[in-house]
Amino acid sequence: MDTVRCPGLAESINGTLAELLEQDPRLLLLGEDIGRLGGVFRVTRGLRERFGEDRVRDSLLAESTIIGQAVGMAMSGLVPVCEIQFDAFTFPAVNQLVTQAARIGGRWNGQASPGLVVRIPTGGGFRGVEHHSESNEALFARFPGVSVACPSTGEDADQILRYAVTLGSPVLMYEPIRLYWRRDAVARDPEPARSPTAARVVRRGADLTVVTYGAITHEVLEAAHALACDVDVEVVDLRWVAPIDMATVLDSVRRTGRLLVVHEGSRDVGIGAEIAASVAEHAFDALRGPVRRLAPARRAYPPADFEKDYMVGVQEIKDEVLVMTK
């Protein structure tokens, strides 16, 4: 299995934010402890010293006010990029995101375009405590007016951020915590995505398609390479879950005839269910077997000592692929 060295997600995001701050005087950062501390994961380290406290702003410890301020800033012509410390901390800001940011454009007949970006550290695998390891991207993916991205590499995070600040509507970028400082990755096919919101086929194969996104893309690729002598697995990294690039998924499924969806968020009513339904509607005649989903059961994320029993790992992915192809 070939591996490559690459910048960690945190390093890539920090560099991209610095370039965006330098290029656009309207852009500013807002979040809890992102200035003096550099954020809980130090993703914004050094940016306050470089660009000043007016553009890298420490907020109150209240997520509703972070997003509320950002909506007002965006309507005033600024481009705020917010940070929420952990995924589950977005819940106090749901009203500001869903009933304000996502709807103001329509409410004002397109005369206001609240363009803002919300960066959200997400997922497990780092021994986080309590509700610090959740994966709630499916919650916001269902709301009209909100775009949701889930990068698995620094390169994709860079492209997503650069696109998101130009969109003129709310974008949530879920950043896998366990990738912040990871510097090695399984080699991927170099073919770029067709557009800023398109999925990427990161491994070509003929026997089965695995659709995935976020941190678990790395485990999927590792499993695919480990099975290479027996099963030729194609891997599609969605990169965005709202909108979902179903065209790339359908093209892949029509080539391979089988589909497995793997994600870190809970299995029930998740992104995998949406993809399975869409494939059943539009590519049923291409399937050689039932679509399957592999994801954690619908239960609260466990304490750190038990997270390995909750998360999907390489062995589970390999076992599922073999069941589907034997």
Rank of each mutant, 00 (worst) to 15 (best):
42 R>I: 06
184 D>I: 10
318 K>I: 10
186 V>C: 07
4 V>Y: 04
222 E>Q: 12
165 V>W: 00
218 H>I: 13
138 A>V: 04
54 D>P: 09
258 R>M: 05
223 A>E: 06
24 D>G: 10
12 S>Q: 13
25 P>S: 14
187 A>R: 15
52 G>L: 11
291 V>L: 04
211 V>I: 01
163 Y>F: 07
222 E>V: 08
224 A>S: 07
63 E>F: 08
102 A>Q: 06
227 L>F: 09
257 G>F: 10
93 A>S: 09
302 P>F: 09
133 S>G: 02
89 F>A: 14
295 A>L: 06
117 V>C: 13
293 R>P: 11
29 L>N: 05
147 S>Q: 12
166 T>S: 07
248 T>D: 05
143 F>S: 08
207 D>H: 09
138 A>F: 00
47 L>G: 08
260 L>I: 03
284 F>W: 12
310 Y>V: 03
167 L>A: 15
90 T>W: 14
254 R>S: 01
294 L>I: 00
173 M>F: 01
210 V>H: 02
300 A>F: 11
13 I>M: 15
298 R>P: 08
207 D>Y: 04
17 L>C: 10
173 M>E: 05
154 G>D: 10
37 L>H: 13
86 F>D: 01
313 G>M: 02
2 D>G: 12
27 L>H: 12
77 G>F: 05
111 Q>A: 15
77 G>R: 04
82 C>Q: 07
315 Q>R: 13
102 A>M: 05
11 E>Q: 15
196 P>Y: 05
65 T>A: 14
216 I>N: 01
267 R>I: 15
219 E>Y: 12
203 R>L: 12
114 P>F: 05
6 C>G: 07
300 A>C: 05
317 I>E: 07
17 L>V: 10
130 E>V: 14
291 V>K: 01
47 L>N: 07
206 A>R: 15
145 G>P: 07
46 G>S: 15
269 V>I: 12
141 A>Y: 00
216 I>M: 02
116 L>H: 02
294 L>S: 00
66 I>K: 12
13 I>P: 13
37 L>Q: 14
148 V>D: 08
324 M>W: 08
233 V>I: 08
61 L>H: 09
178 R>I: 05
53 E>Y: 06
23 Q>M: 10
306 F>R: 14
185 A>L: 00
314 V>L: 03
258 R>F: 03
318 K>A: 08
258 R>K: 06
68 G>M: 09
77 G>Q: 07
192 P>A: 00
23 Q>H: 11
14 N>D: 00
223 A>I: 06
265 G>V: 07
62 A>F: 01
1 M>I: 14
248 T>F: 02
228 A>C: 12
210 V>S: 06
49 E>T: 11
313 G>T: 04
303 P>M: 02
325 T>M: 12
297 A>P: 04
249 V>T: 10
24 D>T: 08
94 V>A: 14
293 R>E: 06
204 R>D: 13
218 H>M: 13
61 L>E: 09
117 V>K: 11
39 G>M: 12
124 G>K: 03
116 L>M: 11
43 V>E: 11
289 G>M: 03
291 V>R: 03
199 A>V: 10
159 Q>T: 03
324 M>T: 07
42 R>P: 11
302 P>M: 04
166 T>Y: 00
